[in-house]
Each structure stands twice: as C-alpha cells, then as structure tokens.
Design a binder for these strands. Structure first.
Lengths: 212, 212
DNA sequence: CCGAACACGTGAAAC
DNA sequence: TGTTTCACGTGTTCG
C-alpha cells in the first residue's frame, strides 16, 4: 500500500536499536523513555497486585480486573454494613436486657424511648465542647468538655467510642464541679481508610454528650 | 545513522491528518484506532469508578489510585474478619446467657451463680490485677490491669463504676497490646448501693474485669 | 481475516 | 527549570 508509505515506523527496529544503543545513541530516544517505562511497569505491577487480591476474576483483561475489584469492594462494604448492623442490634439487645434487669420496678421501657425521654428532659444549659483531630491515617485525638447531669453519662461516652470502632489507646477523664474533661488518643480499629471525616465524628459525639 | 533511517514517523502529522480527514482519508489511520480509543476510554472509566468508590485517595495518579484501592480492600477484609470474630464471640456469650434465662423450670439463677460459672469457664491466661486504696472517708484510688478480650469491655468497667455509685474525679485508661491499665481517683456518692469497703469493691471489680 | 487486548515510544502538559 | 503523568496512535499477538 502506497498509502502507508509515509508511515515507515518500524517498532521492532526501534526496540532493537534502543536495546543495542541504549546508553550510547539517544537519537531516537525521548528524554522520558525510561521514566515512561518505569511508570508503565509500576502501573502494571499495581494492577497485578490488585488482581491477586480480588478472589473472583471473570477475565484477565485490565478493564475487567478493575470491574471485578469494584464489585469486590461493593461486596465487602455491603458485608461490613451488614455485620455492623447485626453487631449494633446485638449490642442494643444486651443493653436492653441489662437495663431491664437493673430496674427495680420491672417496667419494660425500650432504650430508644428512654433516650427520647432524656432528650426532652435534659435541655442543656451550657453547650458541650467537642474537638476531633486526625493525627494520622488511623489515629485520632479527641477532647470533650461537657456538663455531667446524671450518673452513668461516662458509660454512654465509652459506649459511643466502642460503637464507632475506636480502640482507646490513652484516655483521661477529669471531673470538677460537675464538668467533665474527656481527652483520648485512639486508633480506629477497622483501618485508616474506613475513617470517617473528623467533622462527622465530632457531630456524632456532640449529640452523644448533649444527651448525658 | 542509517540504522535509524526507517524511523520517519511523525506524530503531529498523523494527528493532523486524523483530525482533518478523520472519516474521509484513512491514510494514516490504523485499522484499530477507534477500537483502541474505545478500549482506553473504557479502562479510564473503570479507573474513575474505582476511584469514586475508594474513600481515601492520597494522589490522583492512576497508580496511586490502584494502590489506595488495594489498601482499602485490605482494610475492608480486615474489618470483616474483625467484625465476624466479634459477632461469633458475642453469639457465644448470648447463647450462654440465653441458655440460662431460658431454663424451663423457672428457677431463678442468681447472678453470682452465673459469675461462678463464668469463672470456671473463662480461665484467663493472665490474671487481672485490681488494687483499691481508701484515701479518706469517701474517696478511693483504684488501679486495675487486665486483658482486653472484646470490644466494649471498657463500657462494662465504667458501668460498674456507675453501679457502685462512684463519681470519677480523675481517670486514666491506657491500652497497649491488648492490656489495659485503668487508674482512677474517685468519690463515693452517698446513694451508692455498696459501702466503700475496699476488699469488697476489689472483689466486685475483679469479677467485672474477669468477664471482659 | 478481523476484533480484542496489549506494550510501546512519543509530545504535551501539569506540578 | 525538569521531572512526572497522561493520552495518543501504532504494530503485534491471540482467539
């Protein structure tokens, strides 16, 4: 085909020349040829690693590997959600059982109703103070100052920490004249990437300490 | 160098011709040009989708996106493992409790019996350590070292403090490699169900930390 | 023979 | 500045 005449690029020759005169003759070599090769290799390695992590691979294509990885991540997140739901439900049940057992009059009030009642009754006078600082990937530093209005309030705070999946490394609680200073350095159990943003944690904890 | 003579490929010319005569003149067009474009777009889209699924992206690089996805998958699997462990443990516990509660003869097994049973069942590897020191009339200093076997254990401790009618003045909790050091300086509230007898408090707390 | 998948070197552009 | 990342069109291989 004379149409293809101007296009006389020969890849094999080019490769051969590159390999032969790799360091001596740079006439046909871009400056970033080796860098590009490194980049390609790195990307390829990552994709290989990703493939090795995903259990079910429908096809060996690069695109399908990513698709399978996406499906796997979705499955995993769904699994995590389901498990946490189950765990929370179970936590709530055991709490309910304990609460009922401790009640002397034997009245069966659900914990949600009790919480609602608490919300109505305890209208905070002083606004609680909550600080959440992300130290690194999976570590947080939290400081809270709030007013202790009833006994067992600290239990709720520690409970909230457990619900959030926090592993308290170093915690200090100081009480003085009805005010509580709670500071903690903690690690997120489920891993750094699962970490919700500090603002959300702060909001959640604010609601927690608001109701105690 | 005549060796490199055949390399007359001109990318710009090729692009220009492609843009100008995209559908009319296919002189410089490979047969699989459009297919390759489709493939690239598909792959790019998948990577975009993957990126949108991973919450923490350190860099926007294609390689780092995959790296982050790998880290995310590892975190997720770790989280799933952890949650299933917890769930299994909790299932076992509730089974134990329910089994006792479900006694058909209606016999009211006291909690002490349950505790005794637990003592028999759970033979801890490391014996927990509990110290209770009476500072003055209504003030105590407590130090406990125990092994954390499950999440929410700290909640039980704080709960026990509330049950005992203790008002925690200054508390410190330090965790390291599954071991927990809990120290507190507290005040006994008048309405407490238990008298501040150090030995009895120590026994009670020992049972509490033994079961967590 | 053809479509799909891939690695390659390259120029442009971003940081 | 220059190093790095990206999209591009290409030739080749495989089913």
């Amino acid at each position: 085909m004379e149409q293809l005449e101007p296009f006389t690029y020969n890849h094999e020759d080019n490769i051969k020349n590159l390999n032969t005169y790799q360091d001596h003759d740079r006439k046909f070599k871009s400056k970033n040829l080796e860098a590009e090769r490194r980049r390609r290799k790195k990307l390829s390695d990552r994709q290989l690693e990703l493939r090795s992590l995903v259990p079910v691979i429908t096809k060996m294509n690069k695109a399908t590997i990513i698709t399978d990885a996406i499906a796997y991540i979705e499955d995993l997140t769904k699994c995590v959600d389901h498990l946490t739901d189950q765990l929370l439900q179970m936590d709530k049940e055991t709490d309910c059982v304990l609460g009922e057992n401790m009640k002397p009059d034997g009245e069966t009030t659900t914990s949600t109703a009790a919480i609602e009642k608490d919300i109505i009754n305890n209208w905070g006078i002083t606004k609680p103070e909550v600080h959440v600082i992300k130290v690194d990937g999976g570590r947080l530093w939290i400081k809270m100052v709030f007013e202790k209005k009833k006994r067992g309030g600290l239990t709720k705070v520690i409970e909230a920490m457990a619900v959030l999946g926090f592993d308290l490394i170093d915690t200090s609680v100081t009480t003085s004249k009805g005010a509580v200073l709670f500071t903690t350095f903690l690690e997120v159990i489920c891993g750094g990437t699962m970490l919700p943003d500090a603002a959300r944690i702060k909001e959640f904890l604010f609601e927690v300490v608001r109701n105690i």
